[in-house]
């Protein structure tokens, strides 16, 4: 049994400790907001927060979550109104939407640490997230907007 918190709720799972957190969340906890895109840490579709730090759930063994706080896109904010989510709406960022959970979680982690990032800092922090639809330009704008709004 591995015990941890997901979006504030205590959970216990009886799975292979090496199972990536991604599949534990998606297959065992029915939290499908965290996406699979590559499974090998290339694309960022699976980014979640572990004790507030952005991590890639596809390469994080579930055992690493033991006793810690996991936050997924479903729990980033209670009403879907985290400044990053609001900015994403304002800039109409998503196209297919598939990469956006990971993009938002990465952006939120960036802003938590660097409240007013420069373009260069955005480049550095978001280089791990692929968007095949090509929403990068709007992602950049939305991060700046969220930065201003969280003030």
């Amino acid at each position: 049994m591995i015990a941890f918190h997901v979006n504030g709720e205590a959970v216990r799972v009886d799975v292979d400790p090496e199972m990536p957190l991604l599949w534990c969340l998606r297959d065992h906890l029915q939290l499908t907001g965290t996406k699979y895109g590559c499974g090998e840490a290339y694309c960022g579709a699976c980014v979640i927060h572990l004790d507030g730090e952005a991590v890639r759930a596809c390469v994080t063994p579930v055992a690493k979550a033991s006793g810690r706080q996991v936050t997924t896109i479903e729990g980033l904010s209670e009403h879907g109104d985290h400044p990053v989510q609001r900015a994403w709406r304002e800039e109409n960022v998503p196209q297919c939407g598939y990469c956006q959970s990971g993009q938002i979680m990465s952006a939120a982690a960036l802003l938590a640490e660097v409240p007013a990032p420069t373009d260069d800092q955005i480049d550095q922090s978001m280089a791990g997230n692929v968007c095949r639809c090509g929403t990068y330009d709007r992602i950049r704008k939305a991060i700046h907007r969220a930065s201003q709004e969280q003030g």
Binding site: A41, V47, E53, A54, V55, R56, V59, S106, A107, A109, L110, A112, E113, V114, P117, Q121, Q124, S125, M126, A127, G128
Partner: peptide, 10 residues
């Protein structure tokens, strides 16, 4: 690593 993209994120 950078904020949100630490070495330890992978």
């Amino acid at each position: 690593g950078a904020a949100g993209l630490r070495c330890a994120s992978c």
